[in-house]
């Protein structure tokens, strides 16, 4: 029986493993965290329909049958290609041979400390979108550092994305809609709160996105301000003054908010040691190159090594799941 090793046990890795296993391939899945599920463990509700992340996770888990060997708290420490096979060693001492490899290492959330001017880690009331999800997932209400309900919240788009200075020129694709989603969720928790989104332009490209955006404005009164944040000052009471340029009005603007949420973008997953060992190429954005952008998005420059999910660039959950299935098919075809 042919054996496939899946590196990365998030959404893409889980779905691809399930499909490969269904097709009669032996699968081992390696995950560095203590459980499978990746970022789904951290998100609360998913756009576009507010479905709980745990619900989707349960669905993915149902496909992870006994046949699939699961290694958690483990990382690939070395990979070597020998003829048509790969020798793989894990950090837990385990090693095995594989006929193909699927890389589904996903992405890291941009480290917002790197945009120090926004005050993350320095000002008490500046958090990231990932922090906010965590709060929601725990079922807590959003509070300022001094324990009050924020009456005004500023949401900053494109933190660490589309930013040459941060070294990331690309758009992270999902943060605009996440901002709209989270803005609505903040309003649902506290309808009196005022929420301001500072955006460069809004990327409402997918099905239902425009509808949600419209709802955010009409139903929830969320204000969208076009202009990039230039600076954030902390006031003595811990509130934050945001300075930006409203590029639609052509005026500089100052506004005080109780809390700031930074829409941290997606960056290529760090610690991807397999990259060098397999001589895989990445594009200038740091994400893996695919064999053919239109026709072979699961292949790489190395035969037998496949990719799926956000390790080839920012994408939504449903795109990730579709890619996982398509990678499973491509692998099955390759193993024939």
């Amino acid at each position: 029986m042919k054996h496939v090793v899946v590196i990365g046990g998030g959404v893409a890795g889980m779905e691809a493993s399930a499909k490969l296993s269904e097709m009669g391939v032996a699968v081992s899945i390696v995950e560095k965290a203590d459980k499978l599920g990746g970022k789904l463990n951290r998100w609360d509700r998913l756009f576009p329909n507010s479905r709980p992340a745990s619900d989707l996770l349960a669905k993915l888990q149902s496909g992870m049958g006994k046949d699939i060997r699961k290694y958690v708290n483990a990382e690939v420490s070395s990979v070597r290609q020998s003829l048509k096979q790969f020798d793989i060693a894990l950090s837990n001492g385990e090693d095995f041979k594989a006929d193909a490899i699927l890389i589904s290492t996903g992405f890291d959330v941009f480290d917002a400390h790197r945009k120090e001017e926004y005050g993350y880690g320095i000002y008490d009331n500046v958090i990231t979108s990932a922090d906010l999800e965590k709060t929601f997932r725990k079922g807590e209400t959003l509070k300022t550092a001094s324990g009050k309900k924020p009456q005004r919240v500023g949401i900053i788009h494109c933190v660490g994305s589309r930013d040459e200075k941060a070294g990331n020129n690309y758009c992270s694709k999902v943060c605009c809609i996440t901002a709209v989603k989270q803005a609505i969720e903040i309003k649902e928790q506290n309808p009196e709160a005022e929420v301001f989104c500072f955006y460069m332009d809004l990327r409402m490209y997918d099905r239902h996105f425009e509808t949600i955006y419209k709802e955010a404005q009409v139903k929830h009164g969320i204000q969208f301000i076009r202009g990039r944040l230039s600076e954030a000052f902390e006031n003595a009471d811990g509130s934050v003054m945001l300075k930006a340029e409203d590029t639609l009005l052509g005026k500089p603007l100052k506004i005080n908010v109780d809390m700031v949420v930074l829409m941290a973008g997606m960056v290529p997953s760090s610690g991807n040691r397999v990259k060098e060992q397999l001589n895989l190429t990445v594009a200038e954005d740091g994400f893996f190159n695919v064999a053919d952008a239109h026709y072979e998005s699961s292949g790489t420059n190395v035969p037998g090594v496949f990719v799926a999910g956000a390790c080839t660039g920012p994408k939504t959950m449903e795109n990730t799941i579709n890619e996982a299935r398509s990678a499973a098919l491509a692998i099955k075809e390759y193993l024939r």
Binding site: E116, E117, I122, Y123, E231, A232, F233, E234
Partner: peptide
């Protein structure tokens, strides 16, 4: 320095 709030602080 304003872009480096930690220095200001």
């Amino acid at each position: 320095t304003h872009l480096q709030p930690s220095v200001k602080k």
